[in-house]
């Protein structure tokens, strides 16, 4: 069964939001959705870049009260 997991990477500089997302994507099953929370402005760009390059699905990306919520589905 597919799951939704939230990764709280707010207020972190190292290893940083995208590295956190990659870590948990490796552990997730195909079909799982991960929601990344990030206060790093770069996440709005670098997360979709990586998701598109590696071939996962970007479901949504929105900024709510200063926090980026980026949802990604593991596709392979």
């Amino acid at each position: 069964m597919s799951e939704l997991k939230t990764i709280d990477a707010r207020n972190t500089f190292c290893p940083g939001p995208l590295m956190e997302l990659i870590t948990y994507m490796k552990q997730a099953n195909v079909g799982d959705t991960l929601e990344l929370l990030s206060t790093d402005e770069g996440s709005a760009g670098d997360v979709p870049d990586w998701v598109n390059k590696v071939g996962h699905d970007l479901i949504s990306s929105e900024k709510i009260d200063g926090v980026w919520h980026v949802k990604v589905r593991k596709a392979k």
Binding site: G16, L18, M19, W50
Partner: peptide
């Protein structure tokens, strides 16, 4: 390197 720049700390 895994992410889009050469180190995770900007």
């Amino acid at each position: 390197y895994p992410i889009g720049r050469i180190h995770t700390i900007e």
